[in-house]
């Protein structure tokens, strides 16, 4: 069974036509991979479907805009994978 990171890396590679080998757990989706907000909607759509969750993008964006969180907390892929695991766990709780 593939890890959460592997699955989101595959989604990003397919959705944004980015070579899979360039996507690492340390990659920042925006700063390193150059994913813009519109492409991220496609990624969120695919992640929502794949994991049966709803990524709280509006809440995350608000937290970043308010200075309560950094983009790294949500958009570095290892951290994104951790957030997804939390959402999946919360859904199953």
């Amino acid at each position: 069974m593939s890890s959460t990171f592997d699955e989101i890396a595959s989604i990003i590679a397919e959705t944004c036509d980015i070579p899979r080998e360039t996507i690492t757990p340390e990659s920042h989706a925006i700063d390193d991979l150059g994913i813009d907000s519109l492409d991220f909607l496609d990624i969120a759509f695919a992640i929502d479907k794949a994991f049966g969750i709803k990524l709280p993008l509006e809440k995350w964006t608000q937290e970043v805009n308010d200075g309560k969180a950094t983009t790294e907390q949500y958009f570095v892929l290892k951290n994104l994978a951790a957030r997804i695991d939390e959402l999946v766990a919360a859904k199953g709780a």
Binding site: A44, F45, D48, K54, L55, L57, E58
Partner: peptide
């Protein structure tokens, strides 16, 4: 077909 956070398809 999908309702995301701040977006829909």
């Amino acid at each position: 077909i999908h309702e995301g956070s701040g977006f829909a398809v």
